[in-house]
Write a protein that binds this DNA or RNA. Structure first.
Length: 494
RNA sequence: GGCGGCAUGGCCAAGUGGUAAGGCAGAGGAUUGCAAAUCCUUUACCCCCAGUUCGAAUCUGGGUGCCGCCUCCA
């Protein structure tokens, strides 16, 4: 069984074979750092993180490069709005990006080049394109001539001859007038007053958007890479232009496999800044949604399909994660057994492992892979919950070799999806700040214990009205009571 | 208008020729003073029409609906 991936280039699922056996080079289009990242970015980078983890798990050596676009109109606009500079805005958002990705348990890329640090490579590439007649300069700008490049449109399925007619009715801006073809795009933009600029053979200015990726790919990974990643909204024009630039310059295929993730939708519409229907990653995580909850949510759908975001859908994933997390917790607490060798596993576990791999091999079918995790987790979760209730027999059962092996396999496979056990944010009598303020909405541990004692007395007297009144009262203060067998009452802050 | 994608139970979502994974919600049972939590059990013939086939959710043709890209965007 080998990994098969949907290649946007061919529009079909293809067996994955890296250029160099055992090694995979990946370039992933990163973010333009003008603002915080939202759920759409989370979905995308989680999907690619899973691809990377799966390749590593499968034994490949992976080199993963992801860029930061830190030269862009939107960054400049933001800087102008707040009276700072492009660099300040970029630095701040790069920092936020790194923090957000880390919270989501996304492995950091091996290298993260920035446009501002790639000017030499960018200028060299443009010079080469110009020398080869693929680019032309006009009034300080340099454009890529799409008509000169056979094969333009091969990724997005566009036909230049037809597209020209469609574009004919467009508003003719000054820039449009400088272009030889409406699809020609800027490699270099002549400087404008008040904007950062860099020296170049074409005068001061800054690079266009697409060229930075071509330059970085070549500089970091070479002329031809194995996999190029990005959101489906980048297929055209960004990736199409990237291909044109790179292939016109090098004469070699830029990337052998192009993978694109589907958009995150809200109410059936794409989440985007312009529509104002976005939720930032940190706003969501800070609101109490756990990173793993979000991860599970996004992995329940196939990466190429649109994913509809809604609070109820996220809650459903949260409940699912709760069970999975309980199983992972039990497994993690068990004696750390050596990593399961597939050959040593009991047949049913080996079969589960095989089904997981088969699902992932099938174009990263995380939805089916998760089904395997849930099945593995089910008995472990039940045991974990029984143990939590003080069931001694369950505790004994948990130490059986079979279940330990199952737990280890669950941990291993969950890890491939980047899912890891999360400790409950707050548990029984675990709140260090429980005595924080006498007048605060949250009562102290001692106060809660006193209430519980009072309730137990009421129950003993069969005064259930009073007992329920106490329980409801605590609930309004965010304290939930859990009656255990044997008359023991525990509580959690909810 | 061009290119691409999607349509499976109340919701989310796998499944690409042999009688429908998984999650959530719901229902029944256990437990409980009653709840909550927990445990056990349980719920579909796959948008419509026509066709291919012994047999189709799964292939072909047509229809309907929805979405993305064609301007910056993960």
């Amino acid at each position: 069984m080998t990994l098969r991936l949907t290649n946007t280039l061919s529009r079909r699922i293809e067996p994955f074979e890296p250029l160099v056996p055992g090694q995979v080079s990946i370039y992933c289009c990163g973010v333009t750092v003008y603002d915080l990242c939202h759920l759409g970015h989370a979905r995308s980078y989680i999907a690619w993180d899973v691809l990377r983890r799966y390749l590593l798990w499968s034994g490949y050596a992976v080199t993963f490069v992801q860029n930061y676009t830190d030269i862009d109109d939107k960054i400049l606009n933001r800087a102008a709005e707040e009276g700072s500079s492009m660099q300040i805005v970029s630095e701040r958002n790069i920092e936020a990006f790194v923090a957000d990705m880390a919270r989501l348990n996304i492995l950091p890329p091996d290298r993260m080049p920035r446009a501002t640090q790639s000017l030499d490579a960018i200028r060299a590439l443009i010079t080469e394109l110009e020398a080869k007649g693929a680019a032309y300069s006009a009034d300080g700008d340099v454009y890529f001539a799409v008509m000169k490049h056979a094969g333009y449109g091969k990724l997005s399925g566009r036909d230049l001859a037809e597209q020209q007619d469609n574009a004919a009715g467009r508003v003719a801006t000054a820039e449009e007038a400088r272009k030889q073809h409406p699809f020609d795009f800027a490699l270099w933009k002549g400087t404008k007053a008040g904007e950062p600029s860099w020296e170049s053979p074409w005068g001061p200015g800054r690079p266009g958007w697409h060229i930075e990726c071509s330059a970085m790919v070549r500089e970091e990974l070479g002329d031809t890479i194995d996999i190029h990643l990005g959101g489906a909204d980048l297929i055209f024009p960004h990736h199409e232009n990237e291909i044109a630039q790179s292939e016109a310059a090098t004469g070699h295929e830029l990337a052998r496999y192009w993978l694109h993730n589907g958009m995150v939708n809200v109410g059936g519409q794409k989440m985007s800044k312009s529509l104002g229907n976005f939720t930032t990653i940190r706003a969501l995580l800070d609101s109490g949604i756990s990173p793993m909850n979000l991860r599970l949510f996004t992995l329940q759908a196939h990466y190429r399909k649109p994913l509809d975001f809604s609070a109820p859908a996220l809650e459903a994933a949260a409940t699912g994660w709760k069970g999975l997390n309980a199983a992972l917790g039990l497994a993690a607490s068990a004696e750390a057994a050596p990593a399961s060798d597939a050959a040593d596993l009991p047949s049913d576990l080996a079969e589960a492992r095989q089904r997981f791999a088969a699902a992932m091999d099938d174009d990263l079918n995380t939805s089916a892979a998760l089904a395997v995790l849930f099945e593995l987790a089910k008995p472990l979760r039940a045991l974990a919950n029984r143990i939590e209730r003080g069931d001694g027999a369950a505790a004994a059962a948990a130490t059986s070799p079979g279940l330990a092996a199952q737990g280890q396999l669950l941990l291993e496979l969950a890890g491939v999806l980047g899912l890891q056990h999360e400790r409950a944010a707050e548990g029984p009598a675990a709140g260090p700040g429980s005595g924080s303020g006498s007048g605060s909405a949250s009562p102290s541990d001692a106060e809660i214990d006193a209430q519980i004692t009072a309730r137990q007395a009421a129950k003993a007297a069969r005064n259930f009205t009073e007992a329920d009144r106490i329980r409801d009262g605590l609930k309004t203060q965010g304290i939930e009571l859990i009656d255990r067998p044997g008359g023991v009452t525990e509580w959690i802050r909810s």
